[in-house]
């Protein structure tokens, strides 16, 4: 039970996917122009990530290690097709809003990364806990970033006006440049907070986490990243 909670909770803060692991940046930047989109994308990822972790973990003993990456891709692709069909049936406006980023969940590093780094080596229950935790962490980050950008860029939150009269929205924030800059600044703030804690413990300040391709399954050239 303890172990289960540990694997679940690490995704919520310690290994928060987009910020601490710096994985799966495309959807983080692309669909966070509003909080709604961020939340919707996050839920789709939770679904795919949890189930793909479960499936990978269940059949980990029969996947030949040499072709494991292709197997992971095939598993996540079938799940993404299911998500696409579900979204078309029950959340069509959101499906249209997210556009090509729904099928692109397949190549999201988080899915492959967790399959490779965790699910392939651990039993099903732990894999589910890991997938749920990581997915919820991802959803929280996306919703937070989406909320921030929507608030500053449009003066709204989840589509409702929340600012005072005469608030001048920064149109820049909901466009592409704002996505890059706000993610960069948020990352820097996280690093800063981490360093303040480290100094308090008497440790030296360190550079933040770099983009880690090693966890994007099967990458033989991690040293180049």
């Amino acid at each position: 039970m303890n172990r289960l909670w540990k694997e679940f909770s690490k995704g919520l803060w310690k290994d928060l996917p987009p910020f601490k692991l710096v994985l799966g940046l495309c959807p983080v930047l692309a669909v966070t122009n509003t909080a709604d989109n961020g939340l919707g994308m996050g839920i789709a990822v939770v679904f795919v990530l949890t189930l793909s972790n479960l499936v990978v973990s269940l059949i980990r003993s029969i996947i030949p290690p040499k072709v494991r990456i292709v197997c992971f891709i095939a598993i996540s692709a079938s799940l993404v097709v299911a998500v696409e069909l579900l979204m078309q049936a029950y959340a069509y406006p959101l499906y249209q809003q997210l556009g090509i980023f729904v099928p692109l969940i397949v190549v999201n590093c988080i899915i492959l990364g967790r399959a490779e780094a965790f699910a392939f080596k651990n039993p099903p229950l732990l894999a589910i806990a890991d997938g749920l935790g990581m997915g919820i962490g991802f959803t929280m980050s996306l919703t937070f970033l989406g909320g921030l950008r929507e608030l500053l860029g449009k003066g709204q939150l989840f589509g409702a006006d929340v600012t005072w009269q005469g608030f001048e929205p920064l149109g820049f924030m909901v466009e592409a440049p704002g996505a890059f800059v706000s993610l960069g600044v948020l990352l820097a703030i996280m690093n800063f907070a981490e360093n303040v804690q480290r100094r308090r413990k008497g440790l030296k300040a360190v550079e933040g986490p770099t983009h880690d391709c090693g966890s994007c399954g099967g990458c033989s050239s991690a040293s180049n990243c």
Partner: peptide, 23 residues
Amino acid sequence: LPIAMRGTPIGLVMAGLMSLAFF
């Protein structure tokens, strides 16, 4: 650079400025 900005954060901010230019 401030230590917290080094690496990925400054890379992202730079990408944002480039994106602004491409705008």
